[in-house]
Design a protein around this nucleic acid. Structure first.
Lengths: 162, 162
DNA sequence: CAGACTTAGTTATGCGCATAAGGTTATCTG
DNA sequence: CAGATAACCTTATGCGCATAACTAAGTCTG
């Protein structure tokens, strides 16, 4: 691939990252959230209570980041962190009632943003888009390789639904 | 658009941002660069010496960010900032010889990264990809709207005359 | 069972990005 | 030409993300 093509692609990805994040930020501000936090709340809504390590895995970010994000969301009352009874190292993260209510607003906003984002693209392209982006992500993902065999400590202990 | 589709899209964009940036970081580290700086160097290589405000416009980031980035790249010897003779407010940014040499390495790396990124995608998709991403970016770009009439101080000094 | 891993989480630090606020210089206008 | 306005840049501050280095707790093995 020649430089101009490569540059066009890399720059496009970089700019999309910046702008999508900025747009997310301005939409989330009225809800009192910063970008990144909405993903945490949505993940909790999707999967239910979970350990911080699992959250980090799902969100694709590192433990120290999870520590800070959960701390701030706890301070603002959207989530609760309780010591895990079966493992004194771990803490279980779950949505509060306030958090659950907030998630509903985030979901609405998420739909609006997606629609805004794909304006003007043919429906066919829109349909393939998530798959394409996921392929790109997989191609540059160095994260999986660092945790080669997926089994983690305590992974079986929380059955998916009590 | 229903929530699942919207979520798939938004999450895909968020994860691509994270991973592409992370991959960029690990590739740039051996060159002594952090992600974001490569874009600045490439822009200087493309357009030649320019004012910080123009750099910010080209890179899509705000003046304070440009100040910090240029300061660090100046400290590491890749760029030079000299007061503009015609405008005592402005400073002209340009590549040093060391910076020019570094850009060549960045270009190579940029090609490798792009090729790695699109691995496994049909050539047709790869060809349309930059355009698609640029459309997405334009759809969520709030930046242009804030500087409604594009005219900037001194913009005419480099003749844009038709 | 004792020591060697491994895993969960935290603190410290640094970068890129943002917004808000301020200083200086250039330009426009009454 | 003087005052208002706008443009360039900077400092201060804050968030999300990262890595490195640490503690505490669970697990595995000799």
């Amino acid at each position: 691939m020649d430089f101009d093509q490569a540059d066009a692609l890399n720059q496009a990805i970089r700019l999309l990252s910046l702008r999508h994040r900025a747009r997310t930020a301005t939409l989330l501000t009225p809800l009192g959230l910063h970008p990144g936090q909405e993903a945490l709340l949505l993940e909790l809504a999707r999967t239910g209570p979970m350990i911080q390590a699992q959250l980090g895995e799902a969100l694709g970010c590192e433990p120290p980041s999870v520590t800070l994000m959960t701390r701030k969301l706890e301070a603002s009352g959207q989530i609760r962190r309780t010591p895990a009874p079966t493992d004194k190292r771990a803490s279980i993260v779950e949505l509060t009632d306030s958090g659950k209510a907030l998630v509903e607003q985030v979901k609405q906003l998420w739909c609006d943003l997606a629609e805004e984002t794909v304006t003007g693209l043919p429906a066919e392209t829109v349909a393939e888009l998530p798959g394409i982006l996921t392929t790109l992500t997989g191609n540059v993902d160095t994260r999986r390789l660092r945790h080669p065999h997926g089994r983690r400590d305590g992974e079986q202990e929380l059955p998916t639904r009590p």
